[in-house]
């Protein structure tokens, strides 16, 4: 795990922790507003977390070419996550919920 310096590791860990806390914050925000549809946004944030875990695992093993599959998995979950985010934002469109 020496490909990344300690500061770089902390930057990664902070990003992941913030994202996890943001998922909780989205759920709480929805609860405060009495709008359960925000839970979909929180769920849509999950693939990006999985993606981040894959990237961190790859870093943990010093970014080896043997684990290149992890990078592809990360790219795939990033794509999936962004589609999920778009879908969640779509459900939050006000014109849609009024119809």
């Amino acid at each position: 795990m020496h490909a990344l310096s300690l500061p770089t590791w902390w930057i990664h860990v902070a990003s992941v922790l913030e994202w996890m806390l943001a998922m909780v914050a989205v759920i709480r925000w929805g609860e405060r507003r009495g709008e359960t549809e925000w839970r979909w946004l929180a769920l849509a944030m999950l693939p990006a977390l999985v993606s981040a875990m894959a990237a961190c695992t790859w870093h943990l093993f010093d970014n080896p070419i043997e684990l290149q599959g992890l990078v592809v998995f990360q790219a795939g979950t990033t794509l999936l996550g962004n589609v999920a985010l778009a879908a969640a934002a779509w459900t939050l469109l006000p014109e849609r919920s009024q119809s």
Partner: peptide, 20 residues
């Protein structure tokens, strides 16, 4: 999976993010 080039996936993921 390793045989797949991840670059197009990363580029493609930008589109749904912009829609988001």
């Amino acid at each position: 999976l390793a045989a797949v080039d991840p670059s197009p996936l990363f580029v493609l993921s930008l589109l749904p993010y912009l829609a988001f």
